[in-house]
Structures are given as structure tokens and as C-alpha cells.
């Protein structure tokens, strides 16, 4: 993953959006086409609401508390990188996958399998005048 990169402070520059990024973007941003013009489709409104997960709950608080309780702060101010990394990853694994977030993560995992297939070159719309210039 990105752990090697983040040590050196490099920027992760993904070539295409992940499902999580997509959900953050296309479900509540962009041009809204009026409901009275649209053909209604089952599921869309629900999807839009579900996407607004976010931020802290009691589960989060307990997870933070658990994580800091396992830290050895006073004795070793600096370092313990391996231990810290273990803890971070362990913490993520232990985390109770509640409700929608769990569903989204699970969906993300499924999609990743699909994405990992060799990517075809992106087929994109182009402009006539650009095509003519070439």
C-alpha cells in the first residue's frame, strides 16, 4: 500500500478514482437534474442518503481510547515505528464494521478485485477539431 510512500512524505497520485472517492463525490455533487424531469429509479435516493456516513460515534471514541491506552508514551517519546504500525493496522482490523460503512468497505473490496485486472486504455470522448489537428 502507501506505507513506504508516507515515510518519505511522497504524494500518492492515483490514476483513477477509488470507490470511496467516487462515493464522496458523485452522489451529492454535480449538476442536479430536476426530479420532475427525471425518470424515477428505485434505489437512487436511498443510495444518496446512505453515502452520508461520516464521523464520530461511540465506536470511534472507544477505538481511539483503546488505541491510546496501548501506547507507551512516557517511556519512549520517539520511535517505536514498527509497534505503532502494528497497532494502527490491528486497530483497523478490530474495528467493528457497523452499518453502512461496513457495507461500503465490503463493496470496495469487491470492486478492487475488478479494478486490479489489467486496465484497458481509457476510451474518452474527444473533440472533432482535436481529431482533425492530429
Amino acid at each position: 500500500m502507501t506505507s513506504a510512500l508516507q515515510q518519505s512524505g511522497a504524494v500518492d497520485r492515483p490514476t483513477s478514482a477509488s470507490l470511496a472517492d467516487v462515493i464522496d463525490t458523485i452522489l451529492d455533487k454535480g449538476l442536479v437534474i430536476d426530479a420532475y424531469v427525471r425518470v424515477s429509479l428505485v434505489g437512487i435516493e436511498l443510495l444518496t442518503i446512505d453515502a452520508r456516513i461520516v464521523v464520530a460515534s461511540v465506536d470511534t471514541y472507544l477505538r481511539f481510547a483503546e488505541a491510546v491506552n496501548r501506547m507507551d508514551i512516557s517511556q519512549e517519546k520517539e520511535g517505536l515505528p514498527e509497534l505503532m504500525q502494528d497497532m494502527t493496522q490491528g486497530g483497523a482490523k478490530h474495528k467493528v464494521k457497523g452499518g453502512v460503512q461496513g457495507v461500503l468497505e465490503a463493496a470496495g473490496e469487491k470492486v478492487r478485485d475488478v479494478i486490479d485486472e489489467p486496465a484497458e486504455p481509457e476510451r474518452v470522448p474527444r473533440r472533432r477539431r482535436q481529431a482533425e489537428e492530429e
Binding site: A17, I26, G30, I33, L41, E122, R126
Partner: peptide, 19 residues
């Protein structure tokens, strides 16, 4: 939309618009 935006201007619609 993103592949389009890389080459031409585009006004993206929110997901799910069907006429």
C-alpha cells in the same frame, strides 16, 4: 466524466439522472 474532463470541458451531472 473524469476521462472526459482531462480533454474537454464538462459539466458533470450528479449520479443517477435518467431522462
Amino acid at each position: 466524466l473524469d476521462a472526459t474532463a482531462a480533454v474537454v470541458p464538462v459539466l458533470p451531472a450528479r449520479f443517477g439522472a435518467v431522462l
